Simulated scan of single mutants.
Amino acid sequence: MFKIRKNNEVETERLILRKLKNDDFETFASIVGDDEIGKQLPKGEGYTYEEAKRWLDRIQLSWNENNYGVWGVINKESGNLIGYCGLNKIEELDEVEVLYGISKDMWGRGYATEAAYSSLRFGFEQLNFEKIIGLAKIKNIASINVLKKIGLKYKKDMTIFRIDVKYFELTREEFNNSCK
């Protein structure tokens, strides 16, 4: 199931992807503040309260400026915020990436894959992007597997923001062909 709702929200079988609100901040800060999640973020450890607030502000600004960005991932069954996912413009590469992070207590249930695939679909079908990339730290096997499951193809290893990553990409044509 993939349904576009008002305000560029997306509904899937188990999730609602919606813009993060200021009311989400405490839960968002606890998710990105977890060192286990944070070690996969650019900083390499959990974000402080202030860093989480700055990131949430940037996320909200992206939606206002670009009409796309990072959503909060809501578990439909519980109604709880369980993570974030969406599309992020990387100015240094002039490319759009799919990104995601799920609360540690929700790992292993396929939520990251479901949310990331829906983000790709939104980017290709609603925003008509020609290409979407994915970046994962070289040792982040779980994230690399998510990128592969949603159809992105490994292209190269690279360094960005002084971090060694694996670079994946998928074109709209490849995405459309995979949906047939």
Rank of each mutant, 00 (worst) to 15 (best):
M1K: 11
M1I: 07
F2S: 04
N7W: 03
N7A: 07
E9Y: 07
E9F: 02
V10H: 07
V10R: 09
V10W: 06
E11Q: 14
E11R: 05
E11G: 11
T12S: 05
E13I: 02
R14I: 07
I16A: 05
L17N: 08
R18C: 02
L20Q: 04
N22K: 10
F25Y: 11
E26H: 10
E26P: 09
E26F: 05
F28Y: 15
A29E: 07
A29G: 09
I31F: 08
G33V: 05
G33F: 03
D35I: 00
D35Q: 07
K39G: 00
L41M: 15
P42L: 00
P42A: 00
G44A: 02
E45C: 08
G46T: 04
Y49W: 11
Y49R: 12
E51V: 02
E51Q: 14
A52N: 05
K53Y: 14
W55Q: 11
W55H: 10
L56M: 08
D57E: 15
R58M: 09
L61T: 12
L61R: 14
L61D: 15
L61H: 13
S62Q: 14
S62I: 00
W63T: 02
E65N: 13
V70Q: 12
V70G: 01
V73I: 14
N75G: 03
N75A: 00
N75W: 11
E77G: 05
E77L: 06
E77D: 15
S78M: 08
G79L: 04
G79H: 08
C85M: 04
G86Y: 03
N88W: 15
N88V: 05
K89Q: 13
E92S: 14
L93T: 09
D94K: 12
E95H: 12
E95L: 07
E97G: 02
V98T: 12
L99G: 15
Y100V: 05
G101E: 00
S103W: 01
D105H: 12
D105S: 12
D105E: 14
M106D: 11
G108A: 00
G108F: 02
G110Y: 03
G110A: 05
G110V: 03
Y111W: 08
Y111A: 00
Y111Q: 03
A112R: 07
A112S: 14
E114H: 12
A115M: 09
Y117F: 15
Y117C: 02
S118L: 01
R121P: 03
R121I: 01
R121S: 11
F124H: 01
F124R: 01
Q126E: 15
L127F: 06
E130S: 13
E130K: 13
I132W: 04
G134W: 00
L135Y: 04
L135I: 12
A136I: 03
K137W: 03
N140L: 04
A142M: 06
A142N: 10
I144C: 12
N145D: 04
K149N: 13
K149Y: 10
K149D: 06
G151T: 01
Y154S: 01
K155F: 07
K156S: 14
D157P: 14
M158I: 08
M158Y: 12
T159C: 06
T159E: 15
F161Y: 14
F161M: 10
V165Y: 02
V165I: 10
K166C: 01
E169Q: 13
E169T: 08
E169D: 15
L170C: 13
L170M: 15
T171I: 00
R172L: 00
F175K: 10
N176L: 10
C179Y: 10
C179Q: 15
